[in-house]
Design a protein around this nucleic acid. Structure first.
Lengths: 387, 387
DNA sequence: CATGGCGTCGGTAGCGATAACATCTAGTCC
DNA sequence: GGACTAGATGTTATCGCTACCGACGCCATG
């Protein structure tokens, strides 16, 4: 063995004493120290600087030497200490992601895409999940990440208040916002909420519905606004009646409650919900009240969660490519880090309407009562058709 | 005064020069360097060690001095450099989480609970999302995290193969496994899959169903096994017939496909799906084929995803407390880190059956055809009842 | 033959923090 | 009153790595 056990006595002493508390009740008595660059250097018969170069600028080292070093690295199972590197370079190659509601499909998918892209680029991702949505929480979360030393922070917090909170922290670290306010001077990646909502609404109008009701998301969410805007724009373009939106909170429950209201109005024939969960709730409420979907009422959602295709009936909805959102957010971040300049680019990912069986042409104009009667009569036939 | 004002001229020079490169292409021309501990010390008129003590062992510093230091910290906006601290302490206060399929409800919720708990304890969480489920990927992901310097790794990768992969990496870093193989000698947190599945199955049997069919998860998943075991146990306890499980892949699509098969068998009256998505697919397939739920067929899921209560019909399912899973995983991790000893504790979180409207007493024994006819006849009445 | 450029490599000086030890006050005790 | 003790602070030595510069051999050049 080329190892010199007495090589660094001070270090050895230090090492032996510091983890004493840990080691005394210790698990692995013969734990070998994690090798450092100098250990590799010694084994390879070079200086630690050469090892460093092999790792960072391999072409500066003669192939033969390089091979020796690599062999030594392999042999010792050496891994560079990122903390030490970060200390001297000032960069950690770690990105922070602030996210509210990791649990729901959109943010979770975005996070996933982001992480995949990041690890491809050699970046690690540390997440800070928000408990509340107020701007203090956002600020605090970013602050925590900055303290942790991230090279940049990506916010998946689609709230207006978050967008505001962002303003205060710019300059500390590069920032990218997902679904944020495009006017805040920070790079933004977002899905084309407006176009998606417009497509969904137009689709219903073209199917002959007099107008389309909207179950909106909470008012301070960017997505809610975009989707409501698209809906409104489509109605206006078609000179359709313009009913007031009913506001939900993205949950199926709130969609159900909205549906209870809508179901009391016999002339409601088309509903555009701002996400799939609420659409599900809406459908549930209608079905419970004997209003058939899509025979009596057409429902469209937004997001295209994986389950949407298997709802009863399968849901027409607007698909968003969250993975691409994540990838693009990462791209913007890397650009900023590499250039050292803060950009304010804006990337819009387009969304596409996916038509399924929750939508149908408008029922002929008649009273709700007779409409319901028709539904009852045709039911047996439809079930047979379907199978 | 023992202080020598000319103490470190070299440092001052260095400071001015090193960041030059950054400053040249710099965004903010007058950007002040992030202050270090010595800067705080200078402002407070103490040594950097006193600053360090204020941060780590405040009680060791005289209140007056402490106040001065804190004021200086505040004034400069000082933040300790975690990389430097990590370099000397050997600990980063960062935990790694390896997760497969961040997108689905269970892992996402667990991750969320974990992150919340971790940040409460002052730990950051960096995630590594898996693209594939083979053991090489798992190994690689953990390896990446270890390189990043995490103090411990938590695996939310409920595959048998992952549990195996784990064996190789123990010792490198404390590990906790969520939904893993309890026999691998690594601490595990898991939901009580068996009991949940048993409860669901017994519930159906007690409702008079002759037997219960099972749509299982993929065969290498721990959850699949537990749920299948519970199902089997309940059948055996009731001396019920024991049909072969149909294997899905957790997706609604696979549930649908299983449902297509099941719907061809007229005597199937109760199905226990290993998760809610597959239950959704199963219901869809039955409904499309004119088999009514719960009148003709009862369906139970597993997980209680938020949407389950708004399926058509609302799904009877087994609720799991993922947040608690996350919290407990963190607890096990912290215990290991603090004690320095590898434990192999096992925590089981109990799951509870939530009964909704997708289950009903078994239909009276008759031919499928007449059963379907009955369904048709009663439909109008039921809808009226519901509203 | 001196000069100079290039390709390789080594030495040294920190990065910003903590650990260990040293020092310097005040009190305390006999 | 002097030695001792404990509390409060300062000094020094690392942690493992990279930035910077210098050393050295080699070859082409004038």
């Amino acid at each position: 063995m080329p190892r010199q056990p007495n090589q660094r006595p001070a270090r050895a002493t230090k090492r032996a004493e510091v983890p004493k508390a840990q080691r005394d009740n210790g698990s692995s008595p013969q734990e070998s120290q994690r090798p450092a660059m100098t250990d590799v250097a010694r084994v390879a018969g070079v200086s630690h600087m050469t090892v460093s170069r092999v790792l960072n600028d391999p072409e500066l080292v003669r192939p033969l030497t390089r091979a020796r070093v690599l062999a030594a690295i392999e042999q010792l199972g050496y891994r560079p200490n990122l903390a030490a590197r970060a200390l001297v370079t000032g960069r950690t190659r770690t990105l922070g992601v602030v996210t509210f509601d990791t649990t729901s499909y959109g943010p979770a998918s975005t996070l996933y895409g982001l992480e995949q892209a990041a690890s491809n680029e050699g970046y690690a991702v540390t997440v800070a999940a928000l408990a509340a949505t107020d701007r203090t929480s956002v600020h605090e979360a970013v602050s925590r990440l900055v303290s942790q030393g991230v090279d940049g922070a990506i916010l998946i917090v689609p709230l207006r208040s978050a967008a505001d909170a962002v303003k205060g922290i710019v300059k500390d670290v590069p920032l990218v916002v997902v679904e944020g306010d495009p006017d805040v001077g920070v790079p933004v990646v977002m899905c084309d909420q407006r176009a998606g909502a417009e497509a969904a609404t137009s689709y219903l109008l073209e199917a002959g519905h007099q107008t389309v009701w909207h179950v909106a998301g909470p008012s301070n969410w960017m997505e809610s606004e975009g989707r409501a805007q698209g809906w409104r724009a489509a109605l206006e373009a078609a000179h359709a009646e313009h009913p007031p939106p009913i506001v939900g909170d993205w949950s199926a429950k709130s969609g159900y409650e909205a549906g209870v209201i809508l179901a009391r109005m016999p002339d409601v024939s088309a509903v555009f919900a701002a996400n799939d969960q609420m659409a599900l709730g809406v459908m549930r409420a209608f079905v419970e009240r004997g209003r058939r979907i899509p025979d009596d009422v057409s429902v469209v959602g937004f997001d295209d969660i994986p389950e949407a295709a298997y709802f009863t009936p399968p849901l027409t909805t607007v698909r968003q490519d969250f993975a691409r959102v994540g990838e693009n957010a990462l791209k913007l971040m890397i650009d900023q880090i590499d250039s050292g300049a803060a950009s304010s680019e804006k990337i819009v990912i387009d969304s596409t309407l996916v038509t399924r069986e929750s939508t149908a042409p408008a029922p002929s104009r008649q009273t709700a009562a007779s409409s319901r009667a028709t539904a009852k009569r045709t039911r047996g036939k439809r079930a047979a058709e379907a199978s």
